[in-house]
Simulated assay, not measured.
Amino acid sequence: MNILITGIHGFVGSNLVVALKEHHVLYGLDIIAPEKEGVEKTFSWKDIESTAFPMQQLPQFDAIIHLAGKAHDTKNQSAAQAYFDINTGLTREIFDFFLESKAKKFIFFSSVKAAADSVVGDMLREDVIPTPVGPYGESKIAAENYILDKLRVAVQRDKRLYILRPCMIHGPGNKGNLNLLYNVVKKGIPWPLGDFENKRSFTSIDNLCYVVEGLLTRDIASGIYHMGDDEALSTNELIALMCEAMGKEPHIWKMNRKMMEGCAGLGTLLHLALNTERLRKLTENYVVSNEKIKSALGIEKMPVRAAEGILKTIRSFSD
Rank of each mutant, 00 (worst) to 15 (best):
76 N>V: 08
117 D>K: 13
176 G>W: 00
138 E>R: 08
183 N>S: 13
243 C>H: 01
51 T>Q: 14
9 H>G: 15
260 M>R: 05
293 I>E: 00
152 R>G: 09
52 A>P: 02
49 E>F: 15
14 S>W: 07
56 Q>P: 03
97 F>I: 05
157 R>Q: 15
99 L>D: 03
42 T>P: 03
157 R>T: 09
184 V>N: 03
41 K>M: 03
11 F>A: 03
287 V>S: 04
174 N>H: 15
208 L>G: 01
228 G>D: 02
209 C>I: 07
99 L>G: 07
283 T>G: 00
259 M>Q: 11
144 E>N: 07
257 R>D: 05
118 S>L: 13
123 M>Y: 12
158 D>T: 14
135 P>N: 00
230 D>G: 08
10 G>M: 08
256 N>T: 08
146 Y>N: 05
23 H>A: 11
220 I>V: 15
94 I>L: 11
249 E>C: 09
174 N>S: 15
72 H>A: 11
216 L>N: 08
171 G>Q: 03
183 N>T: 14
100 E>P: 00
202 F>W: 11
34 P>V: 06
229 D>G: 03
261 E>I: 12
248 K>S: 04
277 E>G: 10
1 M>T: 10
199 K>T: 00
233 L>W: 03
172 P>Y: 08
137 G>Q: 05
232 A>H: 03
294 K>F: 01
135 P>T: 06
170 H>F: 13
189 I>A: 06
133 V>C: 07
237 E>G: 04
142 A>H: 02
284 E>L: 12
27 Y>C: 12
30 D>T: 00
314 I>C: 02
153 V>L: 15
276 T>D: 10
146 Y>R: 06
146 Y>C: 02
277 E>K: 14
26 L>I: 13
242 M>L: 01
113 K>Q: 14
4 L>V: 07
114 A>S: 13
253 W>C: 11
240 A>M: 10
257 R>G: 12
241 L>S: 09
268 T>Q: 13
122 D>W: 00
221 A>R: 13
7 G>A: 11
118 S>M: 14
176 G>P: 04
1 M>F: 10
92 R>H: 15
259 M>F: 09
1 M>A: 13
184 V>R: 14
17 V>L: 10
315 R>M: 09
123 M>I: 05
147 I>V: 10
133 V>D: 11
161 L>H: 04
175 K>I: 10
62 D>E: 15
37 E>Q: 12
291 E>C: 07
249 E>A: 13
306 A>F: 02
137 G>W: 00
117 D>R: 12
